[in-house]
Simulated scan of single mutants.
Amino acid sequence: MGREEQVEEREVLDSIFPDEITDISETEYRISIKLDLPEDDSDEASEPPTIVLYVRYPEAYPDEAPILDLSPPQHAAPPHPHFAVSADKVRLLKGLEDAIQENLGMAMVFTLVTTLKEEAEQLVADRRAAAAKAREELILAAEREENKKFHGTPVTPETFMRWREGFLKEMEEKQRREEEEKLAELKKAKVKEPVRLTGKQLWECGLAGKVDEGEGEDDDGIPTEQVEKIKIEA
């Protein structure tokens, strides 16, 4: 009875997967399963991956589980960024165990193909979402770094006190420089030219006519020592 069920199932599968199924022997065949994936900008240059499911009937199938294996397609295909049969094989086969146990005693290959396809497509979707989240985190991190350039140091009591101390020191230094400049200007303003007396002033001071010609006179006939004294007193 097992062999009859196997032949019947194989005929049904041939009508469902006319271009995807290939016989290897009377009890063994392979089915190519192309994943249906929504378009994604990050995978724009990648074709949807294909899984080849190998099925071999043990003598007691379907009361006994079929012998399954997975491989990439025989023709060379560009690698997909989120899926590789060689890397995901163990995970995908393990994902079929519950379906096998639930369908023992019944033809189950179509159910296994459907389950395998859904598991693989969900795996790709999860990885796409994780990659998109990672890209978003990188963009946000870059934006945060860029925004730091436009944000000052947060004001806290400690940062305010440091700023205040620096500001007061700067103002004190500025005031000191200004006072020094003003003092220097005042000193310059107090320096005067020597006082030169008129003839009348000399007469009033009792200096006129008291100088011997040619002795200790300046150009105006005034005794030099007397002029120096007058300059100082002035």
Results as ranks from 00 to 15, higher is better:
residue 37 L to W: 12
residue 12 V to M: 02
residue 105 G to E: 13
residue 206 G to W: 04
residue 47 E to K: 05
residue 219 D to A: 06
residue 218 D to Y: 02
residue 135 R to Q: 14
residue 176 R to Y: 10
residue 9 E to Y: 02
residue 71 S to E: 13
residue 207 L to Y: 11
residue 227 V to C: 03
residue 47 E to R: 03
residue 226 Q to G: 01
residue 10 R to I: 03
residue 218 D to L: 05
residue 56 R to G: 11
residue 117 K to M: 07
residue 161 M to K: 11
residue 211 V to Q: 05
residue 115 T to Y: 13
residue 171 M to P: 01
residue 7 V to N: 05
residue 9 E to G: 09
residue 170 E to D: 11
residue 183 L to S: 09
residue 148 K to L: 15
residue 20 E to D: 15
residue 210 K to P: 02
residue 165 E to P: 00
residue 124 V to Q: 01
residue 75 H to E: 14
residue 107 A to N: 15
residue 171 M to V: 15
residue 33 I to S: 06
residue 154 P to C: 00
residue 206 G to L: 00
residue 93 L to S: 02
residue 224 T to P: 00
residue 157 P to A: 12
residue 158 E to R: 05
residue 79 P to H: 07
residue 55 V to K: 02
residue 154 P to N: 03
residue 59 E to Q: 08
residue 4 E to Q: 00
residue 144 R to P: 02
residue 205 C to W: 08
residue 224 T to M: 00
residue 148 K to Q: 14
residue 44 E to R: 12
residue 23 D to S: 14
residue 27 T to Q: 08
residue 98 D to W: 05
residue 154 P to S: 04
residue 50 T to S: 14
residue 16 I to V: 15
residue 21 I to C: 11
residue 43 D to A: 13
residue 232 I to H: 10
residue 228 E to A: 10
residue 217 E to L: 06
residue 188 K to E: 12
residue 135 R to W: 05
residue 134 A to M: 07
residue 22 T to Y: 09
residue 184 A to I: 03
residue 99 A to Q: 07
residue 122 Q to C: 00
residue 138 L to A: 10
residue 219 D to T: 05
residue 93 L to P: 00
residue 83 F to A: 09
residue 144 R to F: 15
residue 15 S to I: 03
residue 158 E to H: 03
residue 121 E to F: 15
residue 176 R to E: 15
residue 187 K to F: 01
residue 68 L to T: 08
residue 57 Y to F: 15
residue 232 I to E: 15
residue 232 I to F: 13
residue 88 D to I: 01
residue 158 E to N: 06
residue 173 E to K: 06
residue 36 D to R: 07
residue 192 K to S: 08
residue 231 K to R: 14
residue 24 I to Q: 04
residue 127 R to E: 07
residue 143 E to W: 08
residue 95 G to P: 01
